[in-house]
Simulated scan of single mutants.
Amino acid sequence: MILDEFSTDPCTGLPNFFGFLEMCSNSFFDETGAIAIVEISGIIHLKGTLGPKGTEDCIRALAGALRASVAAAPQQSGMKTTAFRYGGDEFVMILPGFSHAEAEREMAKITAAFQEYIKNQQLNGINLHVTIVEYFDPDARIATLIKAVYMALNRRHRDVGPSALPAWADEMMDGMAERIHRTLVLLREARTMALTDDISGLPNHRAAELYMEDLMKKHQNNGTPFSILLVDGDQLKAYNEISYEKGNEVIRLMGALLAGAVRHGDKVVRWLSGDEFLVLLPGADRKAALQVAERLRVYMAEETAKMEMPVTISIGVASCPEDAVDTSGLIKTAEEANNQAKRLGKNQVV
């Protein structure tokens, strides 16, 4: 998620305008299909009544209906239906292989689901406005879908508008979209390098700090617990005395074993130095974290038992909110617990 934040809308989790550009650039639409432009009409007049949270809840409700439609939609010729949050209260849905009539039926289901939400929340004056445009160009360029959205929105808000862009504007929009796409690719590559550890290939400590910030926000908003495990190998010094490359091999091995043994959704990152790793456990309280830590400790010992120098690990556990409710406090607790595990003779969980 962290590496996708350039192209993901934080409110809904759907691809944003940049995600729209990226997917257009990857030629993800079929020879024929439909584009649905969806707007929440009336929400701007209720912002004072709903407040920021109520407004976001309304936007998320529509995003949920779009996401459910995407999940249920049949895949056409290798192309898949995709939804985007294009702007404030504007969404775009690409329906490859759909005729106008098929797209209308699909959007009617989405409208019904959203209206049910509006009815349950007793929100008067909010409706959906849906515009459907078919496309027929198998060799469409990057800007094809952007132009279709622009035309639909222009007609919607002004009731009049050009039926096509002049040639110079067409070329300019296409070139602009391509340049934005290339810039996003470079930004993503630079961000990936900045957040990736060179030796293990795992996310690094910068990525860990971002992951923890995200988990801390979820705890503050929803009370969701989480835990961290500070894992430190017990044999790196001995391997480094053979050669630093041997030490690096052990670091890579440890990272791979840990990453392959954690639960779905857990994160393993290379921590600050040596053979230190941080494991982030979303939703895990201290009891669950201790169980995971013990399982990892046993697994590491078993998987390396036949090596000339088997690898063991010492693990310090810290949990939010039991041990701390801020990232620095959690790290301090985990470090102290890890030091205690070392003092107890290593190959321990504390």
Rank of each mutant, 00 (worst) to 15 (best):
Thr55Tyr: 12
Arg105Glu: 15
Ile59Gly: 05
Ala103Met: 06
Ala68Trp: 00
Gly51His: 04
Ala71Arg: 10
Ala71Lys: 07
Gly97Ser: 13
Val92Leu: 09
Ala101His: 12
Thr81Arg: 05
Ile94Arg: 02
Arg85Asn: 02
Ala103Val: 04
Thr82Met: 11
Ala63Glu: 13
Asp57Ile: 02
Ser99Met: 06
Ala72Tyr: 01
Ser69Lys: 08
Thr55Gly: 15
Asp89Cys: 09
His100Ile: 14
Leu50Gln: 08
Ala61Thr: 02
Pro52Arg: 06
Asp57Gly: 00
Ala72Val: 01
Gln75Ile: 15
Lys53Ser: 11
Ala73Cys: 11
Arg67Met: 12
Lys53Cys: 07
Leu50Lys: 01
Asp89Asn: 10
Thr82Cys: 13
Thr81Gln: 10
Leu66Pro: 04
Leu50Thr: 12
Ala101Val: 14
Glu90Gly: 05
Met79Cys: 15
Glu56Gln: 15
Ala65Val: 00
Ile59Asn: 02
Met79Val: 03
Gly48Glu: 13
Pro52Val: 15
Ser69Gly: 14
Glu56Ile: 10
Tyr86Thr: 08
Glu102Val: 09
Asp57Thr: 06
Ala103Cys: 05
Ala72Lys: 00
Pro74Asn: 13
Thr49Met: 14
Gln75Phe: 12
Met107Gly: 03
Met107Lys: 00
Ala68Gln: 10
Gly88Pro: 02
Val92Gln: 02
Thr49Tyr: 10
Leu62Gly: 02
Ala72Phe: 01
Gly51Phe: 06
Leu50Phe: 10
Glu106Met: 14
Gly51Trp: 06
Glu102Ile: 05
Gly54Asn: 00
Met107Tyr: 02
Glu90Asp: 09
Ala68Gly: 08
Val70Ser: 09
Cys58Thr: 14
Met93Asn: 03
Ala63Ser: 13
Ala108Asn: 11
Gly48Arg: 02
Phe98Cys: 11
Arg60Phe: 05
Gln76Pro: 03
Glu102Thr: 05
Gly97Lys: 04
Gly48Thr: 05
Glu102Ser: 15
Pro74Lys: 06
Arg60Glu: 13
Ser77Val: 03
Ala71Cys: 10
Leu50His: 03
His100Gly: 08
Leu66Val: 01
Ala68Lys: 00
Cys58Ile: 12
Thr49Phe: 11
Ala73Asn: 08
Leu62Val: 08
Phe98Val: 01
Lys80His: 08
Arg105Ile: 11
Ile59Lys: 00
Asp57Gln: 09
Asp89Phe: 01
Ala72Pro: 02
Ala63Gly: 12
Glu102Asp: 14
Gly88Trp: 03
Gly54Thr: 03
Gln76Ser: 15
Leu66Phe: 11
Tyr86Phe: 14
Gln75Ala: 15
Ser77Thr: 04
Gly64Gln: 08
Arg105Ser: 15
Pro96Tyr: 06
Asp57Val: 04
His100Trp: 10
Phe91Gln: 04
Glu90Asn: 04
Pro74Val: 09
Phe91Gly: 07
Ala108Trp: 01
Ser69Gln: 13
Pro52Ala: 15
Tyr86Met: 13
Met93Thr: 06
Glu102Asn: 08
Leu62Ser: 07
